[in-house]
Design a protein around this nucleic acid. Structure first.
Lengths: 199, 199
DNA sequence: GAACTGACTATTTTTCGATTCTGGTCACCG
DNA sequence: CGGTGACCAGAATCGAAAAATAGTCAGTTC
């Protein structure tokens, strides 16, 4: 398996899956666009499902890296968190597969990959976890936080914000404002004065 | 239009829509189960869509009332909020139509009713708004909150929690715990000490 | 004569079998 | 030996016939 061919296959597969979805994208088509024979695709991945997973993994890692790159641990973590959400929001249009993954859209078509999708979601939570840890380190965030649990909640909240605007008028300004409101709420909390942290 | 018949029609329609969804539920069937002729259904609602909306409105109002009944304005609002979420969670199984409404599931089948669905969602936010106002009144919640905006965020967060567990193993314990975590997070906020409220 | 009905119609949905398309394999090529 | 594409069984798709459905309204009932 030549590396360049593998690269080409994954890259073209990504485009096809994004444009047509898992079902309608055909292996024949992917092979043709990648400039290889169909058999070669089956050297890169054991099945169409595996190919899809491979593509998704690549996408998530890439998305992850691009977000992680923007995290400067010396800046205040509360700013980092909001900016992380806004950056993620901005990349969603270029990463439809990631968006679908977050929204759980693939579950209906490929319920048997549920566990793997969950893994990928966990990978996607890593930048959030990192920012939370930075915040605790900086003494800005409550040290008693269960960072994994909180990260999952934040990712859910972020996803919900995205979901309820997809397919609607989707004024990007509105979306950004909602994201800011939501994260401001989470950062400051509802209560007037944060109760003294007890063990 | 005799009141008892209208009642029977709406009640049976609710069951049918819940069991089969809007498309597969047939007006003939609803009429038969309600013990009336098909024409009578069209005295209760001008069309099948209107009937669906009428049923949904009834469901949301009922759901609303049952939640509102539990709100004792003398109790601490932070407790009220978490309990509200848990109560809502507990009723979801008995109110599949409301759950679908929250999750936006009807949008795909009836996009032309989007605006009405949004109205219904707003109605569903009323108990949350009430608790937020109680909290401000009690001096427990920040008085600068935009209660409508915050209520929508909380409803989204609640919905997200529900969505990501529907169709999965759905251990109810886990769901309750996640809800508690999420609302505890929102109540206390991420930051260690709430910054002094500025204008 | 107002409340109610159900046969009727135009339109949708379903069925089902023929046909095309697709995932996956493997004997063969360069 | 990395790579290929003709090949196969099963899945998706299509089209036309058949069944079902939303909505109407002349007529029945009380």
């Amino acid at each position: 398996m030549e590396a360049a061919k593998r690269e080409s296959i994954l890259s073209e597969a990504c485009k096809c899956f994004a444009k047509l979805g898992f079902q309608k994208a055909s292996v024949d088509d992917i092979a043709r666009r990648a400039g290889v024979g169909k058999g070669t695709v089956y050297l890169a991945a054991a099945s169409k499902k595996d190919l899809f997973y491979e593509v998704l993994l690549r996408e998530v890692r890439d998305w992850n890296a691009s977000l992680q790159k923007r995290i400067d641990p010396r800046r205040p973590a509360d700013q980092l968190l909001t900016e992380l959400a806004l950056s993620s929001l901005a990349t969603m249009d270029e990463r439809p597969l990631v968006r679908e993954l977050l929204m759980g859209g693939h579950h209906e078509v490929l319920p048997e990959l549920k566990d793997r999708f969950d893994e990928l979601r966990s990978i996607g939570m890593k930048p959030i976890v990192e920012v939370l840890e930075i915040g605790i380190e900086q003494g800005r965030f409550r040290p008693d936080l269960d960072v994994d649990e909180v990260a999952r909640i934040l990712l859910d909240l972020h996803t919900a914000t995205v979901m309820f605007v997809v397919g609607r008028v989707s004024d990007p300004l509105r979306l950004a404002r909602r994201t800011k409101s939501a994260f401001d709420l989470v950062l400051r909390g509802l209560t007037l004065h944060a109760p003294p942290t007890k063990a």
